[in-house]
Design a protein around this nucleic acid. Structure first.
Lengths: 182, 182
DNA sequence: TCACCTTGTGCAACTAGTTGCATAAACGGT
DNA sequence: ACCGTTTATGCAACTAGTTGCACAAGGTGA
C-alpha cells in the first residue's frame, strides 16, 4: 500500500494537480513507483475523503479545470508513521529471468533479440540517471535532504549498472551457445 | 501475465501436484516469480481447462488427494511462443526507496533500523544463492541448460550484491547525517 | 477411539493495478 | 463560426495478486 504515500511525498515536495502529479510520476518518483493517471486521480479522491489532503481554493472547480492539492497535517503525520514503520521487502518478480529459465527447457529462439533490446533500454535509463546526477548533485553539496535524494538516485544508477552488466554478460554467453534446433 | 508460464516451466522441469509446485515456488522459481498456493491452484485449473496441461492419471482423485499435472504439447508450444515474444520491462516499484525519499521530507526517524534489517535479509539471500551456486554449478560444466540456469542464478547473486552494497553505503551515509528533531 | 496435527486442495472476498473510454474546457488555425 | 488538438479530469470494467478461511484424508499419541 505505497501509492498514497508516494502521492503524499510528491505533494509535500510541491502541491500539484492530478495531471502535474502524473507528469512527475513519469519522471522522478515514477522511477521507483510508477502510477497511471487513473490510479492517481482515484487515490487523490480517497486521500481527500480521508482528510489527509485538501484541494487548494481555486476559481471554478469545474471539469477540465486544474485542481491542485496540498497535504494537511494529518497527511504529513500518516506519511511519517508509514516511513518509520518496518516493512518486509516485497516478493520480487521478473519476467525476463523467468523467460531465461523457460528457454532452458523450450529453447532460446527469439530471446537474444529481446535481451539486446532490454540492454539498450537499460543503457538509456542509466545515461538519464547519470545526467540527472551531474545536473542535480554536483560534488560539494551535502544537506540532509540532498544526501537522501542522492542516495535514492544512486540506487537507480547502481541498479541499471547491474542490469546492463548482467545483460552484456548474458549476451556473451548466448554467443557461445551451440546453435540449436528447438 | 507470467504466472501460467512460470507454472508451465516448472511442470516441464518436473510434473508436480499443486502443493509440490507451491514448495518449488518458495524456493528456486519463486526467487524471481513468487506465487501463493491459491494462485497456483487457480491457475492449474485454468491451464487444465485450456488444454495446456492435464492431470496425471491417479488412484482416487478425491479431495485431500495428491493430483499431479503434466504439460501437454499445446502447453509447451504456448510457453515457447511466450518465451520468444518481445516484452517490455515492467515498471519497477520499490517501497524502500520511496520511504527514503519520503524521509527527505518528513525525517529519517525509524528508517535506519529497517535499513539494517533489510541489509541482513539481503545478506542471507546472497549467502543462500552462493551456496546454491557452489552446489549446483561447479566449474567445468557447460551444457546449454546449465549455462542458462547459471545465468539466472548469477542475476540473483548480482542483484543481492547490489542491494547489500547499496544498503551498506546508505547506512554509512546515515551515520554522518546530523541528528535531527523531526 | 477420539482429539489433534499435518498434508493437500480449494472457494470467496478483497486490494492493487491496468486498459479503454468519456467528458469538458481552452486554444489555434482557417 | 467551426473543427481539430491539447490539457485536464474522471468512470467502469477488467486482470493480477493477497488474505482468510473451509474441508477432507491420514497419521499420532493419550
Amino acid at each position: 500500500m505505497s501509492l498514497p504515500h508516494a502521492i503524499l511525498t510528491a505533494l509535500l515536495e510541491k502541491p500539484s494537480s492530478g495531471l502535474e502529479l502524473t507528469r512527475r510520476f513519469d519522471r522522478s518518483i515514477g522511477y521507483f513507483w510508477s502510477a497511471t493517471h487513473q490510479q492517481i486521480y482515484r487515490e487523490l479522491g480517497k486521500l481527500e475523503a480521508d482528510g489527509l489532503i485538501r484541494a487548494l481554493p481555486s476559481e471554478q472547480p469545474a471539469r477540465g479545470q486544474k485542481k491542485a492539492y496540498e497535504v494537511l497535517p494529518a497527511g504529513r503525520a500518516e506519511l511519517a508513521r508509514w516511513t518509520a514503520a518496518s516493512q518486509d521487502p516485497r516478493p520480487h518478480r521478473d519476467p525476463l529471468l523467468l523467460r531465461l529459465r523457460a528457454a532452458a527447457v523450450v529453447g532460446t529462439e527469439g530471446l537474444e533479440a529481446d535481451l539486446r533490446r532490454h540492454l539498450e533500454l537499460h543503457e538509456r535509463q542509466l545515461a538519464e540517471y547519470e545526467e540527472i546526477e551531474k545536473r542535480d548533485f554536483p560534488p560539494g553539496r551535502d544537506g540532509t535532504e540532498d544526501r537522501l535524494r542522492h542516495l535514492v538516485l544512486r540506487a537507480g544508477i547502481d541498479l541499471e549498472t547491474f542490469w546492463t552488466g548482467w545483460l552484456r554478460h548474458a549476451l556473451e554467453d548466448f554467443a557461445e551457445l551451440p546453435d540449436e534446433a528447438t
